[in-house]
Write a protein that binds this DNA or RNA. Structure first.
Length: 117
DNA sequence: TACGTGACAAGAG
DNA sequence: TCTCTTGCCACGT
């Protein structure tokens, strides 16, 4: 399964699982995919996800909750607006109460399903 | 074919 | 505690 799908597609699968009103980090996704030190690749995957309507890239932020990818959205505030519409407060390009909104794939995707990634 | 780039994270000093 | 350096690897030129 994962052999056929490239790293990007695996990233997309995880991002799609992020629930409404929640956010996760590049590192968390990278770690989940077994490439903890390849968080940069997750960023690349997000960059390549433009045009893919079903990939909620706005729910992916860096480890401190910073919206480091906002400039890659059509509008500078689009990412913020999308998150706020989901109930996630943003202040200074940063997620307020990041810990409260953080969704960790390592803890929310059961092991059996992980093998599918 | 080869090299530089990149929306990050973690460890070392 | 803060800053710098290294690791990672697919994609574009």
């Amino acid at each position: 399964m994962s052999d056929k799908d490239n790293f990007f597609k695996r990233v997309y699968k995880v991002v799609k699982l992020v629930p409404y009103g929640k956010v996760t980090s590049y590192g968390a996704i990278a770690k989940f995919l077994g490439a903890a030190r390849s968080a940069r690749m997750v960023g690349w995957a997000m960059n390549a996800s433009h045009g893919l309507d079903d990939v909620p890239a706005h729910r992916v932020v860096n480890r401190v909750g910073l919206l480091s990818g906002k400039h890659h959205f059509d509008g500078i505030n689009l990412m913020q607006q999308l998150l706020e519409s989901e109930g996630v407060e943003i202040e200074d390009n940063k997620v307020v109460d990041f810990q409260e909104h953080f969704w960790d794939p390592m803890e929310n995707i059961d092991e059996e399903k992980r093998e599918d990634y």
